Simulated scan of single mutants.
Amino acid sequence: MQKRNRMDINSYHQKYFRPSCLKALNLRFENWEFFSPFSEKAQDQIKLPLELTRTPEDTIINYFSVLREAENISRRSCGTVGQARTPFPIAYNFFSQEYKNKVSYDKYFNSFAGIGHTSLIKLFRVPDGKKGIKYFYEIETIEGFKDKKAEYFGYSYGFIQLVYEKEGFRISNLSKYEEDFLCAPYHGWDHNGEDVVGIKYGTWCKLIQLLYPTVKNGYVKYIYFHGNDGADYCFIFVTLTNGTDVEIAQFRKVISEEWKLVNIRPEEECLPKKSTDNL
């Protein structure tokens, strides 16, 4: 790794080695009264109030607000943590019926093993050319493990898709990826959006004629360039807490036309295909 001066090293450490200081977004239901009617009820006995799912964003923020103080830690030396297990069957009912059929309650509950607190710190609607409802999210969790005496902060991100059912918007799919805090600072160009665009769409695809300065709006990056094919391109990235940029959308526009969502796959479309003769 190339040498850096002291100022570069300080900024490097701030970018990759420091956890998020963003405020939590899931701060609804901070009083115990909200959870009281659901106490001791199984997931199939719960009916969500209609106001919790009136809009897609309400559904997501309320879902994570319910989960904020949910805990599934096997080692608890200090007694009850937060709302204990009560929030899990409530949160499960934010899923669509079709998604419940794919993910059982037991599987859902076990997916929170080791987690004692959840903060939603980033939420951004992903542009979708099919007019679907899709959001990027990032969470900060406090996690505890059997063989450790202390808890640790963990960070994860993913995408949430929603559909409208007769009683409001429901989660129809949810992905989750844990963040790594060592690969980004020590290895690879593919953690940085500008490098990803320059190498994948420039060096590999020979598509870039003129690259414009990056436009940043908080943790969202918009990277524009004019292509050798005469079209303009916009790539949207979201910066995670670990400093990695995740590409979430690609747009292409020809002259005066509107921006259109595209899906260029450089690894498949621009790199030489590996020979299978010797396989």
Rank of each mutant, 00 (worst) to 15 (best):
E51G: 01
I61E: 04
F95A: 06
L174W: 10
V163I: 14
C78F: 15
N31F: 09
C78H: 14
W259E: 08
G144Q: 05
T241H: 00
S39P: 03
N242K: 07
P89Y: 07
N192E: 07
S36W: 13
T80S: 08
I160G: 06
V215K: 15
S39T: 12
E30S: 13
P19H: 02
K23H: 01
R265A: 04
K15I: 07
R125K: 12
I142L: 04
E138Q: 11
Y212D: 11
G202K: 10
G116L: 11
G168H: 04
L123E: 09
V262Y: 03
K3Y: 13
D190H: 10
E40Q: 12
L279K: 12
Q161H: 13
T141Q: 04
T141F: 00
R4Y: 14
G188W: 09
I208M: 07
L207V: 04
K149A: 10
N192K: 13
N263G: 05
L210E: 07
V246T: 00
V126A: 00
P87M: 07
E98V: 14
T53H: 05
V254Q: 11
R75H: 07
K100D: 06
P37H: 06
R85M: 15
K148W: 10
E138C: 02
L162R: 00
D229Y: 10
L25C: 01
N5M: 08
Y105T: 02
S104E: 05
I160F: 01
Y92T: 06
I255M: 10
T239N: 09
D195T: 03
Q250I: 06
F181K: 08
K130A: 08
L48D: 04
G243V: 00
S175V: 06
G218E: 03
P87Q: 04
Y16V: 01
F237C: 11
Y233V: 09
N110Q: 11
W259P: 11
P49D: 02
L174D: 06
